[in-house]
Design a binder for these strands. Structure first.
Lengths: 211, 211
DNA sequence: TTAAAACCTAGGGATTACCCTTAGTTATGT
DNA sequence: ACATAACTAAGGGTAATCCCTAGGTTTTAA
């Protein structure tokens, strides 16, 4: 009994590349390939594979969100993330949402096979370098995807002003409040986001889409 | 007489994907595939194709730079850029350096064929959406995407440290230089990027993929 | 092989950000 | 109406950032 695999990636050449590689492997059947999240969901109503290779950058639904949706519908599905860049935060968020592994697109045939076999045996597959990075990062704080900070109206306004590279003085004038108040808001934002300074605020704000 | 095509991309699945697609097309011969700029240069000493599909993000030499080098060595070579993201500035720079066209990695078989035929006939090939974007840009839009700042080795090191939310003092210790030197580098970075402060540095660095 | 350009280095001085504490004044919701 | 959260803002520091200037080194190109 062969392992049924599907692939979702909006880059057609990636889609066909993985398909080609998989077809060269024994005991693996490429069930379906899709170029969008929507197409994946539609196809899965008919046939669900054992394993799905899922790109993180999809045009319609974010790969991280799609992971969650799919696993809700098909809990036994094993999802392996796909991406170009080695963004640790993405890996973590995928895994937090239930993904079983992660592959960079420069992976070779052997890695694909290892990933499929590992995941099919119910174990997680991570490329070595990524393992180390996640370990490094998990020693920090506020790196988990579940953490979703809530800013108040005023804090969001200050955040946006910081993003516009305004000084505290300028923000105060813009919002008709005291410099000291702006500072208080900035301090609260830093505290909530776990940022060390304004650079950290912007990094996390972009990551958590608070702008 | 078939058209000889080579492919350079550090993402192995992309490499194999394009290869697979090209093999399905008539009158086209895949001469060689390479995963790095170095491998491309070495292979070309033996056999040079008519057309090269060249990724922009290579581990060893930047695709834009490699375009220039290759065209110096092989002026009749036609280069078609490959990338995931539709960064107009990259397209412009590739074309400026002599590339004949540009393809996004979500391109289908038909587009690949059209691109090859167009370029083989000595004409430039650009996907429609990209054409429009380049046009939009040249019509004096303020979002100057063509602007691609170049940072020095030291500046890049400081930039990365700033991104890590380190203080100037910590950066100085990390790089074994004076606090004042770090500040000087930061000033130069701000100047080059047109940023008003460190927040601006990070914004533009993320936008221009300087990290 | 020079001269120019680019890069790395770092000082003084002014400004701004950061970090405490404390505390009065609005909204918000049960 | 009453606790809770949010917005406001003061004093008083320390540390970091920002800006200008400039000497020394390395790299690049004529």
């Amino acid at each position: 009994m062969s392992i049924k695999v599907s692939i979702t990636d909006d880059h057609y050449v990636v889609l066909r590349g993985i398909e080609t590689l998989l077809k060269e492997l024994p005991n693996i059947e490429v069930l379906s390939i899709h170029e969008s999240a929507k197409a994946t969901l539609e196809q899965f109503e008919r046939k669900v594979p054992d394993i799905l290779f899922l790109d993180i950058n999809l045009p319609d639904i974010n790969g991280i969100v799609l992971t969650k949706q799919l696993l809700k519908l098909y809990p036994s599905l094993k999802i392996i993330g796909l991406t170009n860049h080695e963004d640790v935060s993405f890996v973590k968020r995928m895994l937090d949402n239930g993904a079983y592994g992660y592959l960079l697109k420069n992976a070779h045939k052997e890695e694909l096979l290892t990933a499929i076999e590992t995941v099919n045996n119910g174990k997680c597959y991570l490329q070595k370098e990524m393992q180390r990075k996640i370990l490094d990062q998990s020693l920090g704080k506020h790196t988990n995807a579940a953490f979703q900070p809530k800013l108040t109206r005023r804090e969001t306004e200050v955040l946006k002003a910081i993003y516009e590279e305004l000084t505290t003085q300028q923000i105060a004038e813009k919002l008709f409040i005291s410099v000291k108040t702006v500072e208080a808001h900035r301090m609260n934002i830093m505290s909530k986001l776990g940022a060390k300074n304004s650079v950290g605020i912007i990094k996390i704000a972009l990551e958590k889409q608070l702008l």
